[in-house]
């Protein structure tokens, strides 16, 4: 391939701006949507616990996700500082 296409090489594609905040939420709370005061009220009215039994309730799950992400070095590849939850490169 190199002989045929000498200029072809892998390129770094910028992370789409629509995805960036989603990934920060995913890696900081484990899911894409937070639990708000309004949601807690509505969940109670639905006969549910105000905080769902997801990573929202179990912070150790979020810590596990961050350990896994670091082990895969996804954070480095994306330029995401997991401690500050900030991207090193902004649009």
């Amino acid at each position: 391939m190199k002989e045929l296409y000498p200029w072809r090489r892998p390129v770094k594609i910028p992370l789409p701006s629509s995805v960036k905040p989603q990934l920060i939420r995913h890696f900081s709370i484990g899911l894409l949507y937070p639990v708000t005061d309004e949601l807690m009220e509505v969940r109670k009215k639905a006969g549910l616990d105000p905080i769902p039994p997801t990573a929202h309730r179990y912070h150790e799950a979020v810590e596990d996700i961050q350990k896994i992400v670091k082990a895969m070095e996804i954070d480095k590849n994306m330029g995401l500082d997991l401690e500050k939850m900030e991207y090193r490169f902004n649009d």
Binding site: H26, P53, A55, M72
Partner: peptide, 27 residues
């Protein structure tokens, strides 16, 4: 299913890095 996180979105992660899809789904 307790302690669950985002599934994660296969439509995104298979294209970006399938390790993330398989590992976070397994978690």
């Amino acid at each position: 299913l307790p302690k669950s996180g985002c599934c994660p979105r296969a439509g995104v992660w298979i294209s970006v890095d399938r390790r993330v899809w398989l590992t976070l789904a397994s978690y």
